Amino acid sequence: MSLRLTGFALPLALVLHTHAADLAGERQIYLIDGQGKEQAIGTLTVEADGSGYGYTLDLDLNQFKDHFLSMKEMKCLEGPELWCYVPYPYDTPRRITADDLRWLEHDLLFLFKKPDTFGARLWNGIYYPLEVSDEGTIRGEAHALDLNLIASPPEDLTTPPIGQYDIGDFKLEGRWLPDIEIR
């Protein structure tokens, strides 16, 4: 079973036209623990469509276990912590450029919890700000995010609502999966 998120047909007026060849193609998505051990969680397919880049995110939900947390079924990776996928709940254009990966960042939200704690705490959100490296790899490092921020829909559906002032730092050595790579 997989979760497929697409956005090739949706227009976005504020698309920047840079580094076309750097983004196109299919890539694997890996979450990486503090010792460098990788866990593949799905694929990202990016296609140029004349006005920018649409993408499809296909998470391999067979890698995740079902957990019923705070009255909601969640798909979680199990390790020293539960690392639960939190689908962004509103429509997005699923558009990116090499300089602006924010919609993809919104589609890769997680929350963490210790296995022995009760319920899900939305203030334990994980947000990976992403950058394209010189080699074309997309990389990100986990930051804290209070997921209560997305409890109601944003007024403007064309601009990603989560910004740099909404995310915070936390001790990465204390988190199970502090890094993400898409290559």
Results as ranks from 00 to 15, higher is better:
Val15Ala: 05
His17Ser: 12
Thr18Lys: 08
Thr18Ser: 11
His19Leu: 10
Ala20Gly: 07
Ala21Tyr: 09
Leu23Val: 09
Ala24Gly: 03
Gly25Gln: 13
Glu26Trp: 05
Glu26Cys: 14
Arg27Met: 12
Gln28Glu: 10
Gln28Tyr: 02
Gln28Gly: 05
Ile29Glu: 04
Ile29Phe: 07
Tyr30Phe: 15
Ile32Tyr: 08
Gly42Arg: 06
Gly42Tyr: 06
Asp49Gly: 13
Gly50Tyr: 09
Gly50Thr: 04
Ser51Asn: 11
Gly52His: 02
Gly52Arg: 03
Gly52Cys: 02
Tyr53Asn: 11
Tyr53Trp: 10
Gly54Val: 00
Tyr55Thr: 00
Tyr55Ile: 02
Leu57Ala: 03
Leu57Arg: 00
Leu57Val: 09
Leu57Trp: 02
Asp58Asn: 14
Leu59Met: 06
Leu59Ile: 01
Asp60Thr: 04
Asp60Ile: 00
Leu61Glu: 05
Leu61Asn: 03
Leu61Ser: 03
Asn62Ala: 14
Gln63Ala: 10
Gln63Ser: 08
Asp66His: 12
Asp66Glu: 15
His67Lys: 14
His67Thr: 05
Phe68Tyr: 15
Phe68Lys: 14
Leu69Met: 12
Leu69Cys: 13
Ser70Thr: 13
Ser70Met: 07
Met71Leu: 15
Lys72Ala: 15
Lys72Asn: 15
Glu73Pro: 09
Glu73Thr: 14
Cys76Asp: 08
Gly79Lys: 03
Pro80Trp: 01
Glu81Asn: 02
Leu82Asn: 15
Tyr85Pro: 03
Val86Gln: 09
Val86His: 05
Val86Glu: 14
Val86Trp: 07
Pro87Lys: 03
Pro87Asn: 03
Pro89Met: 12
Asp91Ala: 15
Asp91Met: 15
Asp91Gly: 14
Pro93Met: 06
Arg94His: 15
Arg94Phe: 06
Arg95Ile: 00
Arg95Pro: 01
Arg95Val: 00
Arg95Gln: 07
Ile96Pro: 03
Ile96Leu: 13
Thr97Asn: 10
Thr97Met: 07
Ala98Lys: 08
Ala98Glu: 07
Ala98Phe: 09
Asp99Met: 10
Asp99His: 11
Asp99Cys: 04
Asp99Tyr: 09
Asp99Ala: 14
Asp100Thr: 05
Asp100Leu: 06
Leu101Lys: 03
Leu101Pro: 00
Arg102Thr: 05
Trp103Gly: 01
Leu104Asn: 04
Asp107Ser: 09
Leu108Asp: 01
Leu109Asn: 12
Leu109Gln: 12
Leu109Ala: 09
Leu111Thr: 10
Leu111Gln: 03
Phe112Ser: 05
Lys114Arg: 04
Pro115Gln: 12
Pro115Thr: 09
Asp116Met: 13
Asp116Cys: 14
Ala120His: 07
Ala120Asn: 05
Trp123Val: 06
Gly125Ile: 01
Gly125Tyr: 03
Gly125Leu: 02
Gly125Ala: 01
Ile126Phe: 00
Tyr127Trp: 02
Pro129Lys: 04
Leu130Ile: 07
Leu130Thr: 00
Leu130Phe: 03
Val132Cys: 07
Val132Met: 08
Asp134Arg: 13
